[in-house]
């Protein structure tokens, strides 16, 4: 969790990042420059193929750019010897299709990221149970994903994303597979998590109504940032 002194300090700096696929035939990102600060809630909008998910993959260290640099608290991601460790310690992912492991219970799914943390087994169990309790899933700890509704699965996924106390939450269309009511509840939960934990949240969406809930909306088109609007004053930390 960031300290108050870190308020408004640059957390992620994206410097002229390019990403291409199929030997340059597909240009997914064409020189993106962005700075995201500690505690910000940022929505990335854009139509399909605009490059928003590619950008999220790069910010999440799941992929590497062909050129340009991404820095986390001033350190280039390319200088990290193990990006897996970086992801485990600093990032929490929430996916559109939940991506829970089907053979594991809700509790076990939340325990999975904790394998990389130096906590004892009872400590992990306690933390996982508390997180599920916090997202309203305390009564379904031992349920398998197939026995849960879409909204419940996404709640478990949110609990899992918080497992290692990340400084950044990356959410890729978190309400894309949910009905209106569940989508609203999940967005309330995400905002509440952001407000309470004061971590940075970067959310990819194509829904303007959801994007409006963010402090800042970045709009992408054809692999470039075409608009960067501050919708609310950034008050998460300051």
């Amino acid at each position: 969790m960031p300290s108050p002194s870190a308020a408004n300090a640059p957390l992620l700096e994206i410097d002229d990042v390019r990403r291409e696929f199929d030997d340059g035939q597909v240009l997914a990102l064409r020189g993106v420059n962005l700075t995201i600060h500690e505690g910000e809630y940022v929505a990335i909008m854009g139509s399909s193929g605009s490059g928003k998910s590619t950008l999220l993959s790069l910010l999440g260290a799941l992929d590497t750019p062909n050129s340009g640099e991404i820095r986390y608290r001033g350190q280039s991601l390319s200088s990290y010897p193990d990006l897996g460790q970086f992801r485990a310690k600093h990032l929490g992912f929430i996916f559109q299709s939940f991506l829970l492991l089907p053979t594991l219970t809700a509790l076990e799914n939340v325990l999975v990221p904790m394998f990389e943390m130096p906590w004892s087994r009872p400590e992990r169990q306690r933390r996982a149970a508390e997180l599920l309790e916090a997202v309203g899933m305390g009564h379904r700890l031992n349920h398998m994903p197939e026995k849960l509704s879409g909204g419940e699965r996404q709640r478990v996924a949110i609990a899992r994303s918080l497992a290692n106390e990340p400084s950044i939450l990356l959410a890729d269309e978190p309400t894309g597979n949910l009905d209106t009511q569940n989508a609203a509840q999940i967005m309330d939960l995400l905002r509440s998590v952001h407000h309470q934990r004061k971590n940075t949240m970067i959310l990819v969406t194509h829904d303007p109504a959801i994007a409006k809930t963010a402090d800042r909306i970045i709009t992408m088109r054809d692999g470039q940032v075409v608009e960067d609007t501050q919708t609310h004053p950034h008050t998460a930390i300051s």
Binding site: G60, L62, D82, G84, Q85, F86, R87, A88, K89, L91, F93, L99, L101, P102, V112, P113, F115, E116, R160, N164
Partner: peptide
Amino acid sequence: TREIGILLALGWKRSR
């Protein structure tokens, strides 16, 4: 493959 991708995304070391 997808599940292994999830584990990697969640920060699992490749050695694990």
